[in-house]
């Protein structure tokens, strides 16, 4: 009965390989886009090859999402501990605020301080992605039934042990769901990085919008959409391997 899990990883691996093969083959894009848009003189964005753009995009998302997780999860844990419970309302407000604040506005504010390029984009993406992670971490930890904590402490676990052995494993699914949302949002939002020269798949899209070139837009949008789907599947697979389903334990 382990097959379904392995199969899911296999499919993801094949899909990723196909994706890489697709974006590495610029001739194919040239042909396809020329065929679709015979009127355009230029169908591929001159900034860089798709492979480079995708890597730039992944860099933006990877850095900002890692920061989001590395900071968001501990913050969520902290405000659900007795020592941090006073900060729970503030953290809730701040993370909601971070998401209602449009990323473009964050960029506008960040550029004067941080200049152009990668750093302000990462800051904007980090703030924007924080809410789902923090919110789900809090929700996941709060959903741990109090009687299980009672059992954990009653058997002599320290707070740390209860957190690591009981609370986090039980909250893992909900936390990962938050991470998943956050990463997907970031893959989409990272497009705006192109506005201030951070590159990524946003470059052809922004250029396409400015120059009214639909081919450019498609060149950026299609890989971005596939990237989002692959990332979603990757996180879904991780989620699946973390959850303990009794059926699967039964061989």
């Amino acid at each position: 009965m382990r097959n379904p899990k392995i199969r899911r990883w296999l499919i993801l691996g094949i899909a990723s390989a196909a994706f890489i093969a697709l974006i590495a083959n610029m001739q194919l894009w040239q042909m396809a886009l020329s065929f679709l848009f015979p009127g355009e003189t230029q169908v591929l964005h001159p900034r860089a090859d798709l492979l480079i753009l995708t890597l730039e995009h992944l860099e933006l998302v990877g850095i900002s999402s890692s920061l989001t997780i590395l900071i968001g999860v501990p913050v969520g844990i902290w405000v659900t501990r007795p020592s941090g419970s006073n900060f729970l309302p503030i953290v809730n407000d701040l993370t909601s605020f971070g998401q209602t604040f449009p990323p473009v506005a964050v960029l506008a504010l960040a550029v004067p301080m941080l200049g152009f390029g990668l750093v302000p984009t990462v800051v904007a993406l980090f703030l924007y992605g924080l809410l789902p992670v923090v919110r789900n971490t809090i929700a996941g930890l709060r959903a741990v039934p109090p009687d299980l904590l009672d059992a954990a402490y009653g058997m002599g676990m320290s707070r740390r042990q209860a957190l690591l052995k009981v609370e986090l494993p039980l909250a893992a699914r909900v936390i990962l769901a938050g991470v998943r949302i956050s990463v997907i949002i970031n893959i989409g939002t990272a497009m705006i990085g192109a506005v201030i020269g951070a590159g990524g798949l946003g470059s052809p899209i922004i250029a396409g919008l400015v120059q009214d070139n639909l081919a450019f837009i498609i060149e950026g949008a299609v890989p971005a959409a596939i990237l989002a789907i692959l990332a979603d599947q990757l996180l879904a697979n991780i989620e699946g391997s973390l959850t303990h389903s009794p059926q699967e334990a039964n061989h």
Partner: peptide, 23 residues
């Protein structure tokens, strides 16, 4: 120390409270 004390006292809670993620 509470942890020490509790490890030496068996405790069966009112609602059983088995950890669902563990066998």
């Amino acid at each position: 120390r509470p942890e020490r004390l509790r490890q030496s006292i068996g405790y069966a809670i009112q609602s059983v409270g088995l950890f669902p993620h563990l066998t």
